[in-house]
Design a protein around this nucleic acid. Structure first.
Lengths: 131, 131
DNA sequence: CGGAATCCGTATAGATACTG
DNA sequence: CAGTATCTATACGGATTCCG
């Protein structure tokens, strides 16, 4: 089994959790949810430590699942922006519920929202999002 | 990063999703939620295809996170029973919400509850649980 | 029965270099 | 800027064997 793929696991929940469970995925989704639509480069900077390869892989997957959209602007240099779709936002809603549970169980009650301690990289710059 | 561990990821949600994202984990939790407390051997049979190693690993982790309990009965032969804790049940509640989303997005609207298509192995025998 | 220990192959994430 | 391509190592899961 290893990782759940769409083909071999016909269970919808497994598909969804399989997507979320990918490395960095939650981190990325959280950045997009707090920061708004974000360009590739900035995303890479905010998701600290991620490799280019991983980032593109995860973005492609999230896009396939229609949780994020990809907007390509053919300027020079080109600008590519990623943001949450309605699906993505709906998902984040439930993730926040999960987060509430997690907060109660694992502590750190003063840190709010999905991103948690990832915040320290971002918090002050959270307003310079593209939209 | 690879897989999220409790030490390196101080984010509660990441911890929780990290646990759920482990292979077979969701499957196991679902069996316990529909089947009630279950012995190791039966668990291994119901979670079709899992290896002994994986099963024990996942059970240990879920136990550490207090999502399941382990009950050891020192008979001969010994009986070990696993079941959802209150935490676990609370979690399943939210998982069912996630499942509703997943059902809407990925179809299969006639299959209910967390387990989905895993059901075909179990459905008829869902009543012979230990409690 | 319910595991623990060991060995082993592969999938996968990271690093690096290159491109439209 | 926003990726793609390739190469590599290591960690992870499966199979097998053995034990209290």
């Amino acid at each position: 089994m290893a990782r759940v793929s769409k083909e071999e696991s016909p269970c919808p929940l497994s598909i969804l959790v399989g997507v979320l469970s990918g490395p960095w995925t939650l981190y990325i989704v959280w950045v997009l949810s707090t920061n708004g639509a974000t360009r590739f480069g900035e995303l890479k900077r905010r998701v600290e430590g991620i490799s280019t390869k991983m980032l593109t892989e995860r973005l492609r997957l999230l896009e396939q699942e229609a949780l994020i959209y990809r907007h390509y602007e053919p300027t020079v240099p080109p600008q590519v922006t990623y943001g949450l779709t309605d699906r993505g936002k709906e998902l984040v809603g439930i993730l926040n519920q999960l987060n509430d549970l997690a907060q109660r169980w694992y502590g750190q009650p003063d840190v709010a929202q999905v991103g948690c301690t990832f915040v320290d990289t971002v918090e002050t710059a959270a307003t310079d999002a593209i939209r």
